[in-house]
Lab assay of single mutants.
Amino acid sequence: ITIHVNGVTYHFDNPEEAEKFAQKMAKTYQLKMEIHNGEFHME
C-alpha cells in the first residue's frame, strides 16, 4: 500500500496499518484524502 502525503511517499505492507496511518495524518493535518488506483493521496 502506498500513501502520498504532501509529496512524501510512505509504503505499508499491512493494509490496516496503512489505513490507521492515513486517518491519523488526515486528522492531524486536516488533509483531504483521495484514493487513486489503490494508492492514497493526501494534501
Rank of each mutant, 00 (worst) to 15 (best):
Y29S: 07
Y10R: 01
N37P: 02
Q30M: 04
K20R: 11
T9D: 05
F12W: 02
A18V: 03
E43R: 12
E34T: 13
E34H: 12
T2W: 13
Y29P: 10
H4L: 06
G38A: 03
A22F: 02
M33N: 02
E16L: 11
V8L: 10
A22R: 05
T28N: 11
M25L: 11
H11S: 08
M42E: 03
F21V: 01
E39G: 04
E16A: 09
I35R: 01
E19M: 14
N14M: 07
Q30H: 13
E43F: 15
Y10D: 00
N6V: 13
M42F: 12
K24G: 05
A18S: 01
M42D: 02
A26H: 08
I1F: 08
I1T: 06
M42R: 04
N6W: 15
F21S: 00
F21R: 00
K27L: 13
H36Y: 12
V8H: 11
K27D: 15
I3M: 03
H11G: 03
I3E: 00
F40I: 15
L31P: 05
T2L: 12
E17C: 14
I1R: 05
F12L: 01
N6Y: 14
H36A: 04
K27H: 12
G38F: 06
P15M: 13
M33C: 15
G38Y: 06
Q23A: 10
H11T: 08
Y10G: 00
Y10W: 08
N6F: 15
T2S: 08
F12A: 00
P15Q: 08
Q30K: 08
K20T: 10
K24T: 12
K32Y: 14
K32I: 14
G38V: 03
L31D: 13
K20G: 04
V8G: 06
K32Q: 14
H4N: 06
V5T: 02
E19G: 06
M33V: 14
H36R: 13
P15G: 07
A22N: 01
F40C: 15
M42V: 05
I1A: 04
F12R: 00
K32P: 07
H11D: 04
Y10T: 01
G7A: 07
K27V: 13
F40P: 03
M25V: 06
K20F: 07
Q23L: 09
A18E: 00
E43Y: 15
E43P: 05
Y29K: 01
I1Q: 04
G7P: 00
E39P: 05
I1G: 02
A22Q: 03
Y29G: 13
H11P: 01
H36N: 06
T9E: 06
E34Y: 14
A26I: 13
E34F: 14
Q23K: 08
H41K: 03
E16R: 10
Y29A: 07
E39Y: 05
Y29I: 02
H36W: 10
M33Y: 11
V8W: 12
M42W: 05
Q23R: 10
N6S: 08
K27G: 07
F12C: 06
I1H: 04
I35P: 02
V5N: 01
E39T: 03
A26C: 15
T28D: 15
Q23E: 13
K32R: 03
E17T: 08
H4M: 03
K32T: 14
T9K: 14
V5H: 03
F40E: 02
D13V: 11
T9F: 06
K24A: 11
N37W: 09
N6R: 09
E34M: 09
H41F: 14
E34G: 03
M33A: 02
T28V: 10
I35Y: 12
E19Y: 14
I3A: 02
K27P: 13
A18N: 00
K24E: 15
E19A: 11
Y29N: 12
Y10C: 11
H41G: 03
D13T: 11
Q23V: 11
N14W: 07
N6I: 13
K27M: 11
T2Y: 12
I35F: 12
H4T: 06
A22T: 03
E34R: 04
N6C: 15
E43L: 14
T2E: 05
F21P: 00
H36Q: 07
L31Q: 05
K27N: 11
T9P: 13
N37Y: 09
I1W: 11
N14P: 00
H41R: 03
M33Q: 02
D13C: 14
F12I: 01
V5Y: 06
P15R: 12
M33S: 02
T28R: 12
M42G: 03
M33H: 01
Q30L: 05
I35L: 09
H36C: 12
Q30R: 01
N6H: 12
